[in-house]
Nucleic acid binder design. Structure first.
Lengths: 451, 451
DNA sequence: GTGTAGGCTGCGAGCCGACAA
DNA sequence: TTGTCGGCTCGCAGCCTACAC
């Protein structure tokens, strides 16, 4: 979709005519901003591990459809392929602006030191924190009634400074999107109380990108002080509801057959990685994989942290416990390491976190207090009324008024205590707490204690 | 895309929430009207021939990309599979209204009489001609400046009759689209000279369906006298420029691997047939295939007719000559019958007709006059100036003023004469004409002769 | 600090016949 | 018969502040 003729219409050369991609290379910074803080792509030339199972999962997520029984097994296709990453190109769907990466992989049986070192580089590389802000659009932002209310900090950090001697202070902003189209906005500082607004041009952007309340828009400033802007749609329906080109069965078969053929011939093949379509990356730096698999002793009850993306495009670590190790798909993918760890999360309120992860996604933490002997959870433990499996207690120190949250999990009818933040709760405090709880009868419900 | 709240917004239950398809069955009449007059789907339970090569072609057309060298051969996959057609469901893309059909096929090695007879039925079945009209939208039709100018005949044939005693005569029309959304239009008969117009509601339809000049809209009246309307987009860029889910290689491999797996196991598989994406149907009634292959003796120089769709959704037969028989893809598909006939067309002006067809697409006509000995055309014959390869002559009979067109093709430096319409030009007339032309020197340019 | 609503205004969507092909 | 244009008008897109949380 091209914006229709108007002041905000793309001034750059339109470039949607050719087939697969864009002639210009996509701005990598903007691409990563849209992809989110957790996404990092392995360097070209490095060694990676490709998981066809994860790839299949992404297809299923995009098609909103599980793998069908008709999809055959590929007994000769291993659950993971060590590959050389020949090429990575960044793309954005011309209709939806959805970001994705195209990777060319080649299965290898031997590899040189350089490729291995490059994949280690991927672990150390941390992108410099860029100047950007991300805001989830409100009903007012997307209505035709008005413009876009810019959070104060965001405007001051990202936008060029206004001349506050003007009445009212205002300027014209130009920002380029992923397709290198330029959008023009009037940036004005007005109202009572004063606030930053984008007015003229904003509604064209909203309708052009078909944004609705709940979607996010993000602005970044590149090294040349130029504004770039991207969008991130809320998790509404998948963009490709049904492809009308290929049945989902054929798609799944295509993924598997392409990988199997490449593996058998050591020939290159191409995959699309769509970071926002599926929860897990299925092309993992080899060093990251190796370090996780050989560095971590997985045991039931092991505590770990894992990075998640926050509302506002930041990151946050959540804590969890390994509750089981088993095949995600025992029929098709026996002994696969793809999401073979069953986990429970400390904060159940946050809700929709996955109950299965792969070992390279987590950071084990040495449990400072209590490690349960296996078997840890019975898989289907009936919830006894009045005795929740998990509850959160808030304790307060009398002198400092600092408060600490601990998690009480009922295991084998015994309470086990986990701290939410290891840094704040001292070992002695936990011991005391443990003693206190063990001496008391079973505890349930919300409560505050004093230690 | 749902129309936003307004008088023309869908009054029917919205039904785009589930994944693959529509809960309601699509109106078959409307689907066929949108698919075009040439498309007919084989009956469920009948025997069909599936051509993976043609399927692959459709994928390539949808992806705007040719088959890559990376796509492996499937030496065990024959170029055609005899299949039982288990299921056919009609669909329309919720974004674009593009029509497509989902078919479940099962390769068979033996088949019963019933399935064979059913596939013969497909040949005899002629859909009853439905009441419909199709108009290609003009710039005025799609501009925001006004409404839709309804061709007089169309309005009188399809729309409910107006009360011409009103000043001006006007009524409200309601029409349902493929997704069962209802669109409301004001139909008025006014202007000087008087004409039929759709005004209020029309622009919402245009913007809702994102129609542009060159696209077509069609109205049909069903058996309950209710209006249905569909759209047909002009041949602009393919809707799925690049899928962002699967690489085109994987798609091709998926098609082939799915067919190969099904063929090996005699298990069912699913294909999407998108009649407007690719020029040829790749699922053919078995009887049609058999009749063509065993009924027609193909020889170079053979004359044939073939049905094409006209601008206004009618059909027209064009005449052509078989100029060669060879594999379309000698590497991947040796000895395949898929579009293995090279052809030339009598009317080169119409231009974009394919130069390769399959035998079941054509109707051989007994050449009443002249059959050229092979080799017929030299493949790259230079056009001699002043001596066109093809020219059209119009002859007129003195007594009736009836005129006949004949085609003169220069072959091996000799003129060969074809009649455009076999019914009108008698054999004797052609003989006379032939003699006339042979006795004269070479003929070129436009001319009228008298016989 | 920021989301939403009410008020006001000007532009363009949309209805009309004129006119020409 | 029907495509396009100029003219006219009214609805709503879009800019503003007030106010609430």
């Amino acid at each position: 979709m091209k914006a229709t003729a108007s002041s905000a219409a793309p001034s750059a050369a339109p470039n949607g005519s050719d087939g697969t991609g864009e002639k210009r290379t996509i701005n990598a910074e903007l691409w990563h901003a849209c992809a989110g803080p957790l996404v990092s792509l392995p360097p070209v030339g490095s060694l990676v591990v490709y998981f066809p199972q994860g790839h299949s999962e992404q297809v299923a997520a995009s098609m909103q459809k599980d793998i069908d029984v008709h999809v055959p097994n590929y007994p000769n296709l291993p659950s993971k392929l060590i590959c050389l990453l020949h090429n990575v190109t960044l793309h954005a769907d011309s209709e939806t602006d959805e970001v994705y990466a195209q990777m060319t992989l080649q299965p290898v049986s031997t590899y040189d030191k350089e490729a291995l070192q490059l994949s280690e580089l991927a672990l150390r590389q941390t992108r410099p924190p860029m100047e950007f802000f991300c805001k989830t659009l409100t009903a007012s932002d997307t209505s035709t009634h008005g413009g876009f209310s810019v959070p104060r900090r965001a405007a001051e950090k990202i936008f060029p400074p206004l001349d506050y001697s003007m009445q009212p202070p205002a300027q014209e902003l130009q920002a380029r999107d992923l397709h290198d189209n330029t959008w023009t906005f009037r940036h004005i500082y007005r109202g009572q109380p004063k606030r930053h607004l984008l007015t003229t041009g904003w509604s064209l952007f909203v309708s052009g990108k078909r944004l609705i309340a709940g979607d996010s828009v993000l602005f970044i400033r590149d090294e040349k002080q130029q504004l770039l802007l991207g969008i991130r749609r809320a998790n509404r329906q998948p963009t490709n509801i049904s492809s009308s080109v290929l049945s989902s069965d054929s798609m799944h078969i295509g993924v598997l057959a392409a990988a199997a053929h490449a593996a058998a011939n050591h020939s290159p093949f191409t995959v699309f990685y769509n970071p926002r379509a599926s929860p897990s990356e299925f092309v993992v730096p080899f060093a990251k994989y190796q370090k996780a698999v050989y560095g971590n002793q997985i045991s039931l009850g092991m505590r770990f942290r894992m990075l998640f993306e926050t509302e506002e495009s930041g990151t946050r670590r959540y804590m969890g416990t390994i509750t089981g190790v088993s095949d995600l798909d025992p029929v098709r993918w026996k002994n696969s390491q793809w999401r073979n760890l069953q986990v429970g999360w400390d904060e159940s309120a946050a809700g929709e976190r996955r109950n299965r992860v792969s070992i390279w996604e987590i950071e084990p933490v040495a449990a400072p207090f209590f490690i349960c002997p296996p078997p840890f959870f019975r898989t289907k433990r009936p919830r006894l009324p009045g005795m929740p499996g998990t509850c959160v207690l808030r304790f307060q120190r009398p002198n400092t008024y600092a408060s600490y949250e601990v998690i009480i999990v009922t295991i084998n009818s015994k309470p086990v205590i986990y701290s939410v933040d290891m840094k704040l709760v001292s070992f002695h405090l936990l011991i005391k707490l443990h003693t206190y709880l063990c001496s008391s009868s079973y505890y349930c419900g919300k409560a505050c204690g004093l230690i």
